[in-house]
Design a protein around this nucleic acid. Sequence first.
DNA 1: ACCTGAACACCGTTCAAGT
DNA 2: ACCTGAACACCGTTCAAGT
Lengths: 189, 189
Amino acid sequence: MGISKELIIQTSIAILNKSGIENLTMRTLAKELDIKAASLYWHIKNKQDLLDLLAEEICAPITMENRLRDTEKAIFSFCQMYRESLLKVRNAVQVLMESAPNTPHRLELIQHGLKLIRTWGVSDANCYAAMNMINNYVLAFVDDEARFSRLGVEELTTVVRHMGMEFSDFDKQFRYGISVLLAGFCAVQ
Amino acid sequence: MGISKELIIQTSIAILNKSGIENLTMRTLAKELDIKAASLYWHIKNKQDLLDLLAEEICAPITMENRLRDTEKAIFSFCQMYRESLLKVRNAVQVLMESAPNTPHRLELIQHGLKLIRTWGVSDANCYAAMNMINNYVLAFVDDEARFSRLGVEELTTVVRHMGMEFSDFDKQFRYGISVLLAGFCAVQ
DNA sequence: ACCTGAACACCGTTCAAGT
DNA sequence: ACCTGAACACCGTTCAAGT
């Protein structure tokens, strides 16, 4: 069995999880695949192309079930899925931020998010801004969450002392932000 | 007159504004200063040190005047100053994001922001999360704003058509987001 | 169709050596 | 005190050449 795009993606994600994005290079990727860096260019256009593929792969687990009649619950569960998908791959946030959401699945997700926000009562004029706010909130939150989870115990206690913050429950903090945004959307028209 | 830290900072910002962050390298910076890259290490520790200095310089124009009795107005004007400071330097957002807010002025800004948010009525338990939300909102907004302002006319009309969005008035959009956050903070306790 | 060697044009950083 | 030459260990990418 030879090198396939799928294998390249899975190997890249393995490298991300093991060594982080700063060690995902065309050379390390090639080495892991037992080929030379130059050979990668037969399968993918360039590194940006690889990042786009990874972004799409990272977002793949996010589904768009429409079973929830309660719009608020639907938005919460959508954001929660988004968050969980990002947490599954180390540096997922950086990968998404280095690639434009032009890929099919990510475009679908945006459409779905917009629909939810419209249903929540945000006007046409504001729904793109609202969508951006939610998207940026989730990305920034997960970025922090992932960074915290990689801190040593001593740094953690330093941070806690300095900020006087309990972050034992990331879930609660996450829901707080979403609640703020949803309440804010309702209040401002 | 020799090379000073201040000259290095100003030259770096000139390079940012002319060529963007991807062209701010130790080599281009040295060339602009008429020295060799190795010489830079006499004046600054490394590139991360440079980015920290730049982040502090970018945030320098943000003042913390306390003259406004109206908390809402104070927060709006604080965010507006933040935004304007970021817009003055190309890729300012990326610079801030690549450096931790450990420098004196940035720490002061955080303290001031927290105070405003507390005054606005956010609880101790939530004020760090709220502060993060505002900070991330401004950064993401300016990142978009700066990106849009660098788009050509043809891409702009494409985006407008696709999103059905008017972005003639960035100010209005910016204030919308801040309003959402402030209203949300009040509504969720 | 798929892979490689070798090169090109870059990075950040170090360090002995110069003045 | 300040600067440089030269090197080291990297990057992404291209392309003629191999099979």
